Amino acid sequence: MKPALFALAVLLAPVAAVAQSAAMEPAVLRQTVDQFLQVQTAGLPGKVTVAVGNIDQRMKLAACPAPEAFLMPGSKAWGKTTVGVRCTAPSPWTVYIQATVSVLGNYIAASTPLSQGQPILETQLVTMQGDLATLPASIATDKAQVIGRTSNVSISAGTPLRLDTLRSKPVVQMGQQVKLVSSGAGFRVSAEGKAVGNAADGQVVQVRTPGGQNVSGIARAGGLVEVAF
């Protein structure tokens, strides 16, 4: 080896050794997971607290300038979860880190027993506070989401209310005289009819016309049914 090349190799040897021995800091992994979960839960109604699990100090991962966090398909960003962190360069690796995400916020519960099919009144509701991450995703967080709706089942006092078990207040009821309306570019047609069933706003309902024909349309407030022709 030429003297100049030998000298250069001697100078670069310590740098190469340092680069080879550089390892990913556990603190950086924890920060990556924490920031990722903070972003994922930014829209949740409540105060979010992220607790990242311990990382095995014996695990040696090559240093990564841009670690990327991700969730496995079907995983949630709240409650007890697992976040993946991967590196694509200079040395590819993937590691999975456990975390717990708590969401302290308000939710709506029944203050008195609620009967199936009966419209829910504000006096029958109470606002409570707890970890929303431990409750169903469809939990009601505002009384306005519940008032006037009916439950598919009887509910005991103290039970959190789930929106997926509640029916919206009907805007069209069976036997009600309604107005069938259809509109388009430059025209609007209307006719009278009688609702064959109950329907909330936006739901499909059948209407019997004076001629005995059944027509399906979208129920709207004010006794209107929108029909597409």
Rank of each mutant, 00 (worst) to 15 (best):
L44K: 15
A27Q: 10
K2C: 03
P136Y: 04
K2F: 02
D201S: 15
Y107W: 04
A42I: 12
T82W: 10
A51F: 05
Q177I: 01
A99V: 11
V205S: 06
S154W: 01
V181M: 01
V171W: 04
V196R: 07
V39S: 05
A219I: 02
S115K: 09
K179N: 02
K169F: 14
I108N: 08
Q124H: 09
T81F: 11
A200L: 05
A157R: 02
V215S: 12
P45E: 02
Y96F: 13
V126L: 03
N198Q: 03
N198D: 13
V103L: 14
A27M: 02
I139S: 03
V146R: 00
L71S: 08
L61G: 04
V146L: 11
E68W: 05
V215Q: 11
M174A: 12
S75T: 12
V215R: 11
L224K: 06
K76V: 06
K76R: 15
V50M: 09
V196S: 12
C87F: 08
S138P: 13
L135D: 02
G184V: 11
V227Y: 10
P73E: 14
G211Y: 05
I155R: 00
L8H: 00
G117L: 07
A133V: 05
G217R: 02
Q116G: 08
L8V: 08
A144N: 15
A200S: 10
Q40M: 06
L12D: 01
G193E: 04
A228W: 05
S182G: 10
F187L: 08
Q203I: 06
L5I: 07
P90W: 08
N198E: 05
V83D: 00
V15M: 09
I155Y: 01
V33M: 08
L44G: 07
R167M: 13
P170G: 05
T94M: 15
Q145F: 15
Q203A: 12
V52Y: 00
V18H: 11
A69Y: 09
N152W: 01
A7T: 09
V83R: 07
K143N: 14
Q145S: 15
G117D: 06
A19D: 11
Q129A: 06
L44F: 15
Q31A: 14
M24K: 09
K76W: 07
I155H: 00
Q124C: 03
L37E: 04
E226T: 09
N198R: 03
I218A: 09
L11P: 00
S151C: 12
